[in-house]
Design a protein around this nucleic acid. Structure first.
Length: 262
DNA sequence: AAGATGTACAACCGCCACAGT
DNA sequence: CACTGTGGCGGTTGTACATCT
């Protein structure tokens, strides 16, 4: 027997929000806050909506300082770089783009950016918007060996397969909260080149601009450098493979990386 | 002009993790 | 320790609008 739904779908309104509903929710939240319980909020706010629907509406559209559309080249590059490395973990990607929401980034990727990246890839051109100081095409190259022009950002590649939710970075979590450390620690000699990706990828993605609390910030405030490196080798498997392929013999490529986070 | 098709994006769905009891 | 409620997440769907034929 499955769980009871969070609300009675037959009795609550569904579909697009009206301006009146938006205003009702906005004014309630601004006046009273969320109150720590989205499920109870609609009743308190006098809205005939599911709590989850209210939460989504607030987080994605009504919250202050939300940006819609008008993605910059820099944002394109950040999304693409992170997607290539960590896959469809939209909440993490969105958390590095001020004013953007995971839903918005996800939609943007699925409808526009993915096609752009694939088109660039199929044409043989680098997916590279005009260079920016923070992340120019040249600087995002991870040219790693004399034989191979292995470049981060050179072509669209399928991202890692989706992972199960791991609660990596909760948007409301304090910065000191540590991300869970994978149960399988594999920072052995063979895997080490992969871990070094952290030192390259994160600065390429904007360095202190995007990770003002240090690179450990990417992992939710991690302060331990060794743990950061272990995590990086799990969370950036594509980049890890690039580094691994460059650093070891082709048939000595570190196997496995992290298949699971927990 | 009208129907078909494509695109963009808001919203929903179902699952998982976690905290509280 | 098991159970329950809730928040959060990514995948998917629905629909309005634009473009094409």
């Amino acid at each position: 027997m499955g769980r009871a739904p969070c609300c009675d779908k037959a009795s609550v309104k569904r579909g697009p929000w009206s301006p009146e509903e938006d205003e009702q929710l906005r004014s309630y939240v601004q006046l009273n806050g969320i109150g720590g319980n989205w499920i109870a909020l609609p009743q308190k706010a006098g809205l005939n909506r599911c709590g989850k629907s209210c939460r989504l509406r607030w987080l994605n559209y009504l919250r202050p300082n939300i940006k819609h559309g008008g993605y910059t080249d820099e944002e394109d590059r950040i999304i693409w770089s992170l997607y290539s490395s960590i896959g469809s973990r939209w909440s993490i990607i969105a958390s590095k783009l001020p004013g953007r929401t995971d839903n918005d980034v996800k939609n943007y990727w699925n409808t526009k950016l993915k096609k752009k990246a694939m088109a660039a890839s199929s044409s043989g051109a680098a997916f590279a918007a005009p260079a920016t100081p923070a992340l120019s095409p040249a600087s995002s190259c991870v040219t790693s060996s004399s034989s191979g022009d292995v470049r981060l950002g050179a072509a669209y590649t399928e991202p890692p397969p989706p992972r199960q939710h791991a609660g990596l970075v909760r948007s409301d979590a304090p910065r000191t909260e540590l991300a869970p450390v994978p149960a399988v620690a594999h920072l052995d000699g063979a895997c080490w080149p992969a871990a070094a990706a952290l030192d390259v990828l994160l600065p390429e993605l904007g360095g202190e601009q995007l990770f003002p609390y240090g690179y450990g910030d990417f992992f939710g405030g991690l302060q331990d450098r060794a743990l950061e490196q272990q995590l990086s080798s799990c969370y950036f498997p594509n980049v890890a493979e690039i580094w691994g392929a460059a650093a070891v013999a082709p048939d000595g490529k570190p196997p496995g990386l992290c298949n699971r986070l927990t």
